[in-house]
Design a protein around this nucleic acid. Sequence first.
DNA 1: CTGAAAGCGCTTACAG
DNA 2: CTGAAAGCGCTTACAG
Lengths: 323, 323
Amino acid sequence: MSIATVSRALNTPEMVSPATVERVRQAVDELGYRPNLFAKGLLTRRSRVIGVSLPDIHGLFFSELMRSADDRACELGYHLLVSSNAHRADETPTGGFALDLADGLIVMLTERSRVDLEAIAALNLPTVVVGVDRPGLAVDTISFDNVTGAMSAVAHLLEGTPPDRCYFVGGHVGNIDSDERSAAFSEALRRDGHEPAPDQVAHGEYHFDWGWAWATEMLRQGRLRGAAVLGGNDEIAIGIANAARDHGLSIPEELRVIGFDDSSMCDCVRPKLSSVRIPVNDLGAEAVNAIIRRFEQPDSSPRHSRLATTLVRRDSSRVGPAG
Amino acid sequence: MSIATVSRALNTPEMVSPATVERVRQAVDELGYRPNLFAKGLLTRRSRVIGVSLPDIHGLFFSELMRSADDRACELGYHLLVSSNAHRADETPTGGFALDLADGLIVMLTERSRVDLEAIAALNLPTVVVGVDRPGLAVDTISFDNVTGAMSAVAHLLEGTPPDRCYFVGGHVGNIDSDERSAAFSEALRRDGHEPAPDQVAHGEYHFDWGWAWATEMLRQGRLRGAAVLGGNDEIAIGIANAARDHGLSIPEELRVIGFDDSSMCDCVRPKLSSVRIPVNDLGAEAVNAIIRRFEQPDSSPRHSRLATTLVRRDSSRVGPAG
DNA sequence: CTGAAAGCGCTTACAG
DNA sequence: CTGAAAGCGCTTACAG
């Protein structure tokens, strides 16, 4: 039997007689033959591998993202080649890559300074960008709508707290999500007729410690009691809540707190943390769907999908007595 | 200039005149040439890709593991091809794989029933197994020492709680870590002269809900006050602590709790959760080191390294007044 | 339905 | 130091 027939029996069995297919199958099983994927890729230009470039693999957000992407990829017969360091290096966001083994690339961007779409386009690889949505971008994008989520959080804060006692404590300036959330926070106050004072918006890092430090300083100045805070993410919000409680403020009676991300921690802290839910599972699965759509329809016009975020109300921001 | 010279200029510049190397570099830059990794891999049999097979990408443990592995891989010029679904499928733990693109495999095993080392050996790929350490295994392994960590946790519980009021609430039977921790828990009580009653060890799932459910039932029976619990992981421990607090028990005064994993949540809950620390960062980095060592010395005898675990004492298990 | 042959884009002895 | 040539293990027209 020729090597060509074996190849056909494995890849296009309908072109081969059933008896031959069966013989090939048996031989494959017995010998434990596995086709050389490099030789195959050299010819077919397909590896069924999707490159994933993440800004940082850190915390629950990214593990959930990876999980949903991996689940979806597996369903569709694809595999994930991951790298976060691409973004840490000062080089191109995709520099030095083995990513050429991938059929395409999912690039998550969180830093405004890192949004170098030309470098990405220069890779000449099908690409889906996650986290950025600029009008008229020539590449598929998937992002989530920080604005409506943040605005409904502020609306909820305003139910029980005057606008000048509302705060936003975000990540660092230049982080796309933090900036969008911060802007939405300010805009929501303005629509309520209040021009936010500069100190109503603070920027630090997406970390407990920053929330704790901010709250501690506010407590020292005696300005936290009676306030309401929207954290840039859940960690910051929990840091704030912890500092407040460590200093004897009760939540939500004396301080109302809302986080962002709706990570699994929200249900584990006491009081349970209200949070703006980001549909991370959809984000991962949609990114995989989008890159595969791009494989199948390389010339279709770029699609931009923006996933909704929603406020999940829990005890940490409750107004009035426990329900 | 011949194609062979270009290849040499890129891969072994010391074999080419400096002027030629420079000309090649320039041309590469201008044309944006990137070598075809499939063709290259076909010849060299090296891709600088490491396959990582995880039981489940879930929670902070796995995101930390991925992160440390990715950091280390990047330092050494390698990339990670991840899959968790390999373990979910009922097929071989590495079935249907694009992992043949990898130079080697890091396989993390957590289920006793999944420990099919013959199937792994049949892959005929350099392999490092994480999470299992059987004497005489013919493959490199990296694991962590659940026993000493669990034993020191029990010793700490016994400082303030009688042995018959100590409990272990673990993951499901068949989970390697849970079983080891459970066995160590029982053994520690025995060494203290107490044969543990069957109900002192409970098995469920590695999840808040299970901890919550277990504690709720214990509370209903009025058996939780004055007890001390070692959780199979931090989530279980937090679930237990939350249930206790929701029912008015104060921690650590009326219930002492220790978790396992020392995840970042331990510092975020109140009271802060004591926990047995697993050196996850070392685990990821060591796995990468080990697989690369295996690449470089394919015939060296298998190495088995076992990382220490240590109890981190925080308020949730404190004996006596706050320090 | 099957086989012989060309070729994917590289690397690496082998000559020069 | 450089080039011509073979070949890595596959797939895919092209004949038969």
